[in-house]
Design a protein around this nucleic acid. Sequence first.
RNA 1: GCUGCUGUAGCUCAGCGGUAGAGCACUUCAUUGGUAAUGAAGAGGUCGUGGGUUCAAUUCCCAUCAGCAGCUCCA
Length: 687
Amino acid sequence: MTSVQLPDGSVKEFESSVTVKEVAASIGRGLAKAAMWGEVDNQPVPLDHTIEDGQKVDLKIVTNNDNAALATMRHSCAHVMARAVMRIKKGVQLAFGPTTDSGFYYDFMLEQPLTEDDFKKIEAEMAKIIELDEPFERIEEPRERALQICADMKQDFKVEHINEGLADDETLSFYQQGEFVDLCRGPHIPSPKMIGAFKMLSIAGAYWKGDQDRQQLQRLYATAFFTQEELDQHLENIEEAKKRDHRVLGKKLGLFHIDEMVGQGLVLWTPKGAFVRQQLQDFILSHLRRQGYDQVFTPHIGKLDLYKTSGHFPYYQESQYPAIIDRDHISKLASEGCTCGELSNKMEAGEIEGYLLKPMNCPHHIKIYSSQQRSYRDLPVRLAEFGTVYRWEKSGEIGGLTRVRGFTQDDAHLFVTQEQLSTELAGCLELVKIVFKAMGMDSYSVRVGKRDPSSDKYVGDPKNWELAEQACREAAETLGKPFVEEEGEAAFYGPKIDFVVNDCIGRKWQLGTVQVDYNLPERFDLSYIGPDNKAHRPIMIHRAPFGSMERFIGVLIEHFAGAFPLWLAPEQGRVLSVSEKSEEYARKIEQQLISAGLRITGDYRSEKLGAKIRDGRLDMLPYMLIVGPRDAENGTVSVRDRVEGDLGAMPVAQAIARFQKEVEQKAVRQVFKNDSPGSGSETKNEY
RNA sequence: GCUGCUGUAGCUCAGCGGUAGAGCACUUCAUUGGUAAUGAAGAGGUCGUGGGUUCAAUUCCCAUCAGCAGCUCCA
């Protein structure tokens, strides 16, 4: 009699010895088919593993649609890849090799760097290793012995990891496969043959333990699936996602241009993109008026003193364009033979007058607040501006619209009393929600960014930070949506509530943000007169529902896959003449629609209708208005809808009414459902 | 900034030690057609930039600028 207990607690009994596969088959045909391997008493075993007569075991049957199974297989594949690299290259030091949402990587320190030319060799070696079919054997060793093993293998990173990351573990596990031994928590698959299909993807630099002051390693990215079909599908998904990339669509649809000669990360908005941006600005502006904001304008530069008071200078010097120095100072310094080093010292000491391109709008808005005496009766003061800021992002971080050096925030600063704080915060969050709802974006996540208490890059009194973080947490709770709290994600002056979305390849971008700030009011000595006739300190809220126009539109392009809803579409429709015979009538229709306030163009080329429709499709037009002799005769247009296709002929007035209603409602009829194949987050089976 | 890759016509890309090619787009002509590509002809490039090697460089080497992926960073 053999007794098998399954994960749900149920017990199955068999007359004699039984294989894992037979147990699976006894449960169901589907399970037997999907089964990849079993776990007998938590040890992975192949399907043909026999549970002997008389044994009593726990059994889990692992199937190919189990995410954990896929991750286990991928991690085993990472071991195979590391083994292949060690066979090909000498002096390989192993770091970490975890799995990610879509694959896995392994970090190496190499004497000779790897290049993509090595991929073929590595893949061939991996295939050989898999062919050998050597099992992954678990070895457990006491701490001291484990240290010795890693030291003997000259694996310095593993030694360090045992000493630091695993300082509390008494027993450590290794996995051995042939000559390859790696410190690893496991688990692993019972046989390397279960690695169905794998592919090396890319090579990148990565810092040891993510610290840029430590060694830079080479990271090999790869992925693996149980079947070739799944791998092919995955690679195809990546290709599809690339077509949705806002940089590709931005070029194709003529939305924006970034020019080498203008500068890295400096966006030129072409007419169509500028139109989308203006529509969005108008949209948010209408809500600002309703919520009692006042609009202001401020210049793009300000004196160094302003930023010394705010704390931007010199602490954030690295993220700013260099200061613009007063002409008189420059000629004086030049005649004195002043060196660059002396120059920056003099700037920090305040001996040189100069200006800074503004990295933020807050100091300017603060100065508007403090330009007059404020009473508690005036509060809250809400100052809004589409404010363009400039930040010296490192060259390797810049890309497309999502990370740029000059961008426009839909910024506002609210100056409030303690009593008003939670109501005003709620109003700000409401605005962010309005934005996401209007765009049909529901897959965003919320993050409360707190300071990292161990870092010195934050200004202000820890007590104020506690207050501000508590206010953020309470405000986030009112959203009725789960949120994460992350240390080290705060602005330098205060904590924030951020709204984060994924782009087409799975990268996360912060869009809307609401920040609570007790510090800048203090630094600028802001006050208002309270009912007690004494001066009080206001609290500041910084907020931007879009975040920045650039990043928001970048993400929006991918969200719609370029197919903007009617109210946002730069070209809402195009009149297509069936032949030149109908051109005159078609032009009349075009004028009629334009007069009705619609953004319409005409295509009167001597192309066939099919070609014009194709071009209109490629331009992602919401509507095409097809006009031929039949329409001219009946006073109709034949409407082709981007979503539903041919709607047939209708009177011109009916078409106009339809479009106007759709614009009025800001209807979102199509969004791209984002299940990006992305890089994603990594799991924790990393050593 | 770091690691790896890339830079050829407006766009997407091929090519390669002996000073360039395709498709699409563009221009012209013919065609006058009812829901995803009509045909033909033409025009268009100092092969990112600056050095070097060579009899000869778009091709090889170095530097630089820009782009891509990742890391780090992101007020």
